[in-house]
Design a protein around this nucleic acid. Structure first.
Lengths: 222, 222
DNA sequence: TTTTTATTGATAGTAATACTATTATATTTG
DNA sequence: CAAATATAATAGTATTACTATCAATAAAAA
């Protein structure tokens, strides 16, 4: 019996050749993610990945222009997947405050591997995105990459959550700013909790992070 | 007549040889900052900087281990300088809310070059830190660098502002988290305003950014 | 099933990066 | 003035970030 497979759509501008279209491509995704989580973007090279999957650099270059594009692919995958989860978790919930509560629950809690997406381990992906995602947009090439659609999925999610905020308080002037602030903060506060504890207040437990952001959000738009 | 010179203290772990102790060192700081602002950290190399200041790579390596350490030096300089400004702007102000207001004014508004610090142009530095600062701590070497004191000045400022929050509301559970969130947000929201406007709400004008963060802050700790 | 086409692996090569080492020449300090 | 120190010039290495070529092989079309 085969379980259902989740197809996460990623822009064509984020790859040279669709990695999901072949066995090597899927291997690049799977082991590229693992390698990234192990050594970080700075030390990550296509050469090392090639050795790991018993292939060659030139093959990997046929799928991705460079490691930055590879990271951006994962970035989009993550947010597309999260957007799907958010959409699912909020359908048929009348009360917008309850929807916001569920959304903040989703973005603050540690995720588990989604078995419906083979070759991508979401638990690993979340760690990688927490550490590396800011590097996708903090670059001199933002405008060019933005034009190419590198940040579409992230923007879509921000829009979706902003809409909930507007529903709760149509007069609030900064819904998108608030949403992108809590999304960034969610990653950074957890990271600070693990590495720079003086910059936060004991964020080891998911529920504290959730309480911090939910409280901040509700009070701000009240 | 000589105007006063501000000495900004930077940890010894952030350089090999103190760049303020020599003419070449100061030139490295001054033109390194300019070059960074022009081409960004990814394309920045000591070779390019050496050419720019008519010196050599080996000379620059005698001051900084690598470009990451150079960035961290600037990161600390910026926050030490900002901490000084915050301290100055809040002395003799009784009301903690007024102090918070002034602090948020300081961190959200565009800074001008401080003539008391030769060879460092704070206006440029702010732009560079906005774009690159996250890269100082989002790395696999955080713990090691944290141990070495790479983030001391940032932590000091967060503590100082947190103390004000605690004064306003001693019961608020997340003062440090709130402060690091607004500091990060301040940079990112302005950046989004310039490059990814869909992630924010018209943050071109300093006063809007200020209003957004002050409102968020005051309501959260109310 | 054969031919065509596309994909991969193997190999080679280039320019740039991120350094380290050596030495002659300046410059500063005692 | 001598001694110590800092710099510039030069050279060199390992790695990175690619690009190019081509033979072997797998997949698709005829």
């Amino acid at each position: 019996m085969q379980h259902s497979v989740l197809q996460i759509p990623v822009q064509e501008s984020l790859f040279v050749k669709d990695p999901t279209s072949s066995v090597v491509g899927k291997s690049i995704l799977e082991h590229g993610l693992i390698l990234l989580s192990e050594i970080g973007l700075e030390d990550f090279t296509f050469k090392k990945l090639a050795v790991k999957i018993s292939s060659t650099e030139s093959t990997i270059y046929r799928y991705f222009e460079n490691k930055h594009q590879f990271l951006s692919y994962l970035f989009n995958f993550y947010w597309a997947w999260m957007d799907l989860n958010v959409a699912f978790a909020t359908t048929n919930i009348e009360d917008p405050k309850e929807r916001l509560r569920r959304i903040i629950g989703l973005i603050t809690k540690k995720v588990n591997n989604d078995v419906r997406t083979p070759y991508i381990d979401e638990a690993l992906l979340q760690d990688v995105i927490a550490l590396e995602s800011s590097k996708t947009f903090l670059s001199k090439k933002v405008d060019e990459e933005n034009q190419a659609g590198y940040f579409l999925q992230y923007k879509k999610l921000v829009d979706r959550i902003s809409a909930v905020i507007v529903e709760i308080n149509p007069m609030y002037a900064y819904p998108n700013a608030l949403v992108s602030t809590i999304l960034e903060s969610s990653f950074h506060q957890r990271y600070f909790g693990n590495h720079l504890p003086r910059l936060t207040n004991d964020m080891h437990i998911d529920t504290r992070l959730e309480e911090f952001l939910l409280d901040l959000c509700l009070k701000t738009i009240a």
